[in-house]
Design a protein around this nucleic acid. Structure first.
Lengths: 268, 268
DNA sequence: GTGCGTAGAG
DNA sequence: CTCTACGCAC
């Protein structure tokens, strides 16, 4: 069976429910992990997700900001999140689907100044990574685990439009690249979209709203990730190939999210 | 030649430009007087009005609030407004089209409490009427003049859903009815929509957004007016008939203004 | 209920 | 530029 997992920072699920329906119709994900739903649990448009064939829903919402959710075609089993947000924000949600544990995160953006002392948001971001990395180290790498979401770091030189310029910009600073790398090494996580589209090809999942024409300037970043535990290696790599993509055409739709959805397939 | 004059409180011209195009397409007004455009002069969607065949435009805008404009199929001649707003709001705009002077006003709503001392907004409203009435008295009644806009008073018993209940509500209080009457008497202005639809038939041009179904409750008010000077009597009353209507179906459109457009025809 | 202003986040 | 929150006006 093919299990297609999608992650999408929807930037308000109430404003994007119709686009979610279109995306689900076109790409048929079995599990849709969302970030920045920007609503409380009771305000989540459940009916819309039921109508699009994803009736099994787990929501971690809060008023107006952040908020994560998972909507699934298959029944979900409740499972604890790997960690909790230090600041009490709704940034973590997890389920088990078809025997696969899915941990969905909206990691803090980290503010403008890449300085842990002067900028508490940047400290929060790195602390989030440290806590997550520590939690992953305690887990059995052979267990089937997906770590996904808007992780707000573009880890590779080809995950940013300009490595040189971005090294000074939060999302691609050396401290963040190290934090991301440490997380990956915690259990040798597989970076599925990047395995499917190897370097040096550029791969982005986010483009700023501020650009007049995001295609023209193409100043994107790869902030949205689907990472698989070693226990999922055989499920993710089939005949030497990984099936995973960034659905960047979604970024062209009317009134889009600034993030494009990312999918990856597991053969389970 | 038929000159069709329309007045419409659009409640944000930028949000309503498409609806204006539809209305102009369906009703073919020669002159469209707008209120509550809620934008500055430079933010007015000129191109949209040019495209709908109303390229001659006069705008009195301000940031975010109030704002009036006139868009015309025929060339416009600049003409001074009959008065200026005491508070400096953009509430008055005037043009001359085909020899007819058109004075377009967005008269203050007047707040909740009908008390000139306790409520400065109510005082401003009555003061606006007094100033306008004084200005009209100085004009030659035989000159072709239209006074139109959102005048924020429902003058007659059949211009409100409940005369008894509304006598205590700003827009239909005794002081306002007197002020409206004094304005009419200043030069025996003709109330064109009411002449076309005589009492006791109810006639409304505004329905609150707060009603779930405005058709069902039908708690409307006639706040939007097209008044003609005696000099336009023969132009407005043709074979004993006045051609004027409230286009209330516009209120049913998607994301409507809370006001419906009103039109009146002159034979000139 | 709807659309503005302001501010903050991204 | 595009979201949220809050407050105000209508």
């Amino acid at each position: 069976m093919r299990l297609r997992i999608a992650t999408w920072n929807v930037n308000s699920v109430r404003l994007r429910a119709e686009q979610a329906a279109r995306f689900v119709d076109e790409q048929a994900p079995d599990v849709l992990c969302m970030q920045e739903i920007k609503c409380q649990d009771g305000e989540f448009p459940r009916e819309a997700f039921e109508a699009m064939g994803l009736p099994h829903i787990k929501i971690a919402g809060q008023k107006g900001w952040h908020g994560v959710a998972i909507a699934s075609r298959l029944p979900i089993e409740d499972t604890p999140t790997l960690m909790n947000c230090r600041e009490g924000h709704a940034r973590c949600v997890a389920v088990k689907v078809a025997g696969v544990e899915i941990q969905n995160f909206y990691i803090p953006a980290g503010g403008d100044l890449p300085d842990r002392v002067a900028n508490p948001k940047f400290d929060h971001k790195l602390d989030f990574y440290e806590t997550l990395t520590a939690a992953l180290k305690k887990r059995d790498p052979k267990a089937p685990l997906i770590v996904t979401g808007d992780l707000n770091i573009a880890p590779g030189e080809n995950d940013v439009w300009s490595h040189r310029q971005m090294l000074k910009v939060v999302s691609h600073t050396p401290a963040e690249l190290e934090a991301f790398d440490a997380m990956i090494k915690s259990m040798d996580l597989l970076d599925l979209p990047r395995l499917a589209t190897p370097e040096p090809e550029k791969l982005f999942s986010w483009w700023s709203y501020r650009a007049a024409d995001f295609r023209k300037s193409n100043r994107g970043l790869r902030l949205d990730h689907i990472l698989a535990s070693p226990g999922l290696r055989e499920a993710a790599i089939v005949d030497g190939k990984v099936s995973s993509q960034v659905h960047d055409t979604v970024r062209e739709w009317e009134r889009p999210s600034d993030h494009a959805p990312v999918t990856a397939d597991l053969k389970i």
